[in-house]
């Protein structure tokens, strides 16, 4: 898996904040992340680490009046070759990018489809919005898309409502919807989390196939490292609003340089291992402690309270993202020892 170099998405120093009743919280704190054309980048991390906020920031779909981008830039190269900073684009221009240059697939296939419109109607909508397609030709295109995402009997399905489809089919339909205008970037926010394991594998295969066929860049949000190994070129590990380690998937898996990544890898069951451990009466290694709340973040390294490598110096300040090598970085002052 060779990652092409030219980035279509280039996030620099992104900081996203939410104004809540308890005060302002920083959900994403200075993220640098790139996605190349045709490259799949996985964003992993525990619940609440800011993965969804990152992807919603790119789409500029944060809850209005509550969430906003406080700092940083999000340069995106649209199909016409122009590179613009999405962080400062006006709503009108942003709308032209959403659904056309960037497609998005959400976690819950049940609730992310509108219950009162037909599948075909919803899939053809981006074409009507962005391509000015007539209702009829847009519907034909929707049927073709449904076939491409592997839905049998597509013509009949197009006339059905979301509640008439199974969860896996619905997720295929939302993928078809995101791909309708042939985007160059697909953002998939935990697209398989809500599905059965067997359906998960099918949807992953489908995404992998579509990504290769279309040469899209994919930002794949997940908390499942097994999924990462299967589909991504590069991986960025998030913890409490920051990226703590990133690099090519094979490199990070073989040679993790952040204690958090190490913990995540250790808590990931290998095939058959979970049952073997159970028989031996052992538990799967879990990271002790809980994710700190964003409202009262510990000073210094946010992971240090849970880290077995932690030393006094970890509290001194937030560690820099240090280079392990040209393509691999870790936000740990002891990354050299972590690797041993």
């Amino acid at each position: 898996m060779n990652a092409p170099t030219e980035p279509i998405l280039d996030i620099r120093g992104l900081r996203t904040v939410f104004r809540t009743r308890g005060g302002e919280i920083t959900a994403v704190n200075g993220i640098d992340l790139t996605v190349g054309a045709g490259e799949t980048v996985a964003l992993v991390g525990e619940s609440g680490s800011g993965k969804s906020v990152t992807s919603l920031s790119v789409m500029r779909l944060l809850t209005r009046n509550i969430g906003s981008i406080a700092a940083g830039s999000i340069h995106f190269r649209s199909k016409d070759g122009r590179s613009r900073d999405l962080a400062v684009l006006d709503e009108q221009q942003m709308r032209q990018i959403r659904g056309d240059d960037i497609g998005m697939v959400f976690q819950e296939p049940m609730s992310s489809l509108n219950p009162v419109f037909t599948i075909g109607d919803q899939i053809s909508e981006p074409l009507r919005v962005h391509r000015n397609a007539a209702r009829k030709s847009a519907m034909e295109a929707a049927i073709t898309l449904l076939e491409q995402v592997g839905i049998p009997d597509a013509r009949r399905r197009a006339g059905q409502y979301p509640h008439e489809l199974s969860g896996g089919m619905r997720q295929r339909a939302t993928i078809a919807m995101a791909l309708a205008c042939d985007p160059t970037l697909l953002i998939a926010d935990e697209p398989t989390t809500a599905l059965d394991v067997t359906i998960q594998a099918q949807i992953l295969d489908l995404l992998l196939k579509l990504q290769r066929e279309r040469g899209m860049g994919v930002l794949f949000v997940t908390h499942n490292l097994g999924v990462v190994a299967e589909i991504a070129h590069r991986v960025a590990v998030m913890y409490a609003g920051r990226i703590v380690e990133q690099g090519p998937v094979a490199e990070v898996f073989r040679n993790p340089r952040h204690p958090y990544t190490l913990g995540l890898l250790a808590s990931m069951p290998k095939l058959g291992e979970a049952t073997r451990l159970k028989q031996d009466g052992q538990k799967l290694a879990a990271i002790p402690g809980v994710v700190p709340s964003l409202a009262n973040m510990p000073g210094g390294c946010a992971f240090s309270p849970r880290c077995r490598f932690a030393i006094g110096a970890c509290q001194a300040g937030v560690p820099m993202l240090e280079s392990v090598d040209a393509v691999h970085q870790s936000r740990c002052i002891r990354w050299q020892e972590v690797g041993q």
Binding site: E91, R95, R98, F106, N114, E125, V129
Partner: peptide, 21 residues
Amino acid sequence: QDYVRTARAKGVAEFWVIAKH
């Protein structure tokens, strides 16, 4: 609801997000 966010993510104009979806 999620489907309202989905409609926005498709680039549907805000007026139609409200008036249709």
